[in-house]
Design a protein around this nucleic acid. Sequence first.
RNA 1: GCCCCGGUGGCGAAAUUGGUAGACGCACAGGACUUAAAAUCCUGGGAUACGAUAAUAUCGGUCGUGCCGGUUCAAGUCCGGCCCGGGGCACCA
Length: 857
Amino acid sequence: MLVFLLMSKYEPRKIEAKWQSLWEKNKTYRCPNPGDADFDSKKKSYYVLDMFPYPSGSGLHVGHASGYIGTDIVARKKRMEGCNVLHPMGWDAFGLPAEQYAIQTNQHPRKTTDINTENFRRQLKLIGLSYDWSREVDTSDPKYYQWTQWIFLQLYKKGLVYRKEMPVWWCEELKTVLANEEVINGRSERGNYICERRPLTQWVFRITEYADKLLAGLKDLDWPDSVKKMQEDWIGKSLGAEIDFALADAGLSEKITVFSTRPDTLFGVVAVVLAPEHPLVQKITPKSHQAKVEAFLAEMKSRSERDRKAEADDFSACETGAFCIHPLTGEKVPIYLASYVLADYGSGAVMAVPSHDERDFLLAKKTGLPLKKVIIPVAGGSVAEASQDCFTKDGVLMSSDEFTGQDSATARANITNTIEKKNHGRAKITYKIRDWIFSRQRYWGEPFPLLLDEAGKVQAMDESELPVELPHMEDFKPSTDGSSPLARDKNWVHIQKNGKNYFRVTDTMPGWAGSCWYYLRFMDPGNKIKPFSSEAMNYWRQVDLYVGGASHAVMHLLYARFWHRALFDLGLVSDPEPFKRLFNQGMVTAFAFKDSTGRLVPSDEVTAKENAFYRLSNGEKVERFITKMAKSLRNVVNPDDVIAEKGCDAFRLYSMFMGPLDLDKPWATEGITGCEKFLRKFWIYLVGEDDSLKISSTSGPENEKIWKALHKALKRIDDSFTNFNFNTAVAAMMESLNDLHEIKATMTKEQVEMYVKMLSPLAPHVCAELWEKLGHKESIDYSSWPQLEDKYLKDSDFELVLQVNGKIRKRVQVAVDISEPDVLNLAEKELSDMLAGKDVVKKIYVKQKLVNIVIKA
RNA sequence: GCCCCGGUGGCGAAAUUGGUAGACGCACAGGACUUAAAAUCCUGGGAUACGAUAAUAUCGGUCGUGCCGGUUCAAGUCCGGCCCGGGGCACCA
């Protein structure tokens, strides 16, 4: 008896370990490629991808897991729906974070990367994710980065890479150059270190050449609007005009070109303002102002870019004493210098229109320049707007010669046209996006497949020479002088070819390089002669669903789109865009506590009592709030611990049950209890004490009710896949179990099979076990997803809600096929005591829902 | 400052096109089983000095989805204005 009791008990860890090892042994989730013996060309392809992780030293926490569980659920359901599902995983192992971690722990990055990768793989397998592990890639593996270098060569040959000495962001702490995208407010995105501008020779990608295509391509993507918006803003397209102002000094032939999005305000110009770095500054400054201008420039130089940004509202300006000529009025216009004008945007010069631009308005206030109003608000605009000294919206032109009376949009076109005809300017599109600085002065990255000859001329290496392996260096730490660590390995740097001496390029590629195309390698990871075959490419084509955090909205997703479009133009990929649908999973946060002084109290020093929280040591009341998981708060939750204690299926269920996938939500380990209980009850409902399934051989009178309960749940589960709110799918499963419990009848085999299938994407281990108990030799993973049958969703009667003036007064049970007149009659009869002597104004019937009777008060 | 997203019980949350607010679960309370504990099962629950009654309960009323106002027979859902929280951008001409 005791033995029986033990056997029938639901033991998640035993079942989970069994199935995880079977899946591995049987290669259950291996997905065949075109050309493989078991490839079925009739199956539809479905590619569902996670943003692959950088294998950090601290391992996965429950937050990372939630996104992976979400995609796993999708992959498992798609498989059951008959798709050939590509669901791979790999490691974004090159780059700054990996190298920083190695430096901090005083180990070689090769070693730390291997250890961390091992740990990540173990954790992911523990979660029961159905990856095709035979496709695993590691961006720091020469077998992988050979093809990163190969793609780089194709893009280089296409003319998309150039070398340039330019002011770039240098981070002294990280000892490397960073891309514009990696520097936020003058600080490094990684580590938050101060960065400065330095002129250095760098390798640069011509991403600006693709600005328009990258912008236009966003339109048709099934991506979150917020991400599209961020990319649009980053690309920052402005339509406007370049306008030339000739210099008043007849001895100078140069012109000052300004860029403006508001040529309609051209008649309001009171000055032209140059960036301090503008090349004409020295030339135009007359002797009378030389000392003043030089002092100003010296002051500008002494301040770093960061300081200039910090004083955003309090800029400095300086009169040059020089003048230029307004292209349409011929008036003399003074030339100023100001710190708010940026040398590297537009043409490094602006026309100042204080009446219609806030920046220029402040300049006028500071320098005493006059206001010149040329735009008035359109009729119907507010009085406040009309009386503003600085009106920045579109309106109607005044005091603008023949353009007076035109609206802003028309005037923009006409004025641009006129100056173009007079050869004083031209229509111009400007982008905020800059070319992508692609070189890093660090060790842990892909070497460039490029050589410099003795004259310093660049030569691309031959494809047959790939991979250019990263040489092993014991001391890989960054140099102090800004040169690359690889430059220290003289044997590696010097290379002879065809009797000539060459130097290798010693910079390495940034971490983004490997992640720009890994989704392509997953399509054909073992290919030794190409990055991927065209057969594989034409079959898988695009990533159907890409899931990851919103933090990659700009950098990774923009760079990958850029490479992909360039590869598309080279005819190497089948579609212009790589990721058809993008979904941002929310962050899993944690509860944390602070005392009355605002000091943080570690979670393990707090106890809860009657909806309030107290410090264990002294009973002091503390306040609970939600924040990121952090070591210092001791609120980081490791999936290993949760799984060891509660089981993997319970962990997966709870990760989804917390809320919709895209929402930020706090982890609360005690909440998992409900999912644990559900699984246990699910097991007990289906498995008898003798460990065999409880199956009824005949369909009893309750049969119909059981089907109804099952299909009601199936409907909600199916629906949950549109927005990935799997919380409702779990709720539907729980609810159905409550329903079935109430029905108190044993299911037929067919019903048990359906029920187990429905749960299996969410809780695959327990369902695999039950499927086996049902007598199946084939895996549940490739069985068919249940078909929804509408007939089971219909009821014979429903609860009709009766309202008077919108307030609920009564509920009655009526047949679904009741006619409208009958319903209204019934309602009036039921509500007769409330309607007596009242004027009925209106009667509304909402089919199969409610009746609302409106009466006069 | 500008742009996005969000605000529903003690907590996580649910709610087809506007149509029964709070599904499902956590925590809590009461009860059953048990020598006891765990486990399990049953029951309860938005607020309310508003009223009635057999008065820590039941029935009914009223209020209730951040705040104020509007549209509508009907608003968590639509519109306008604000407050709060989170994220992004920030001299971009």
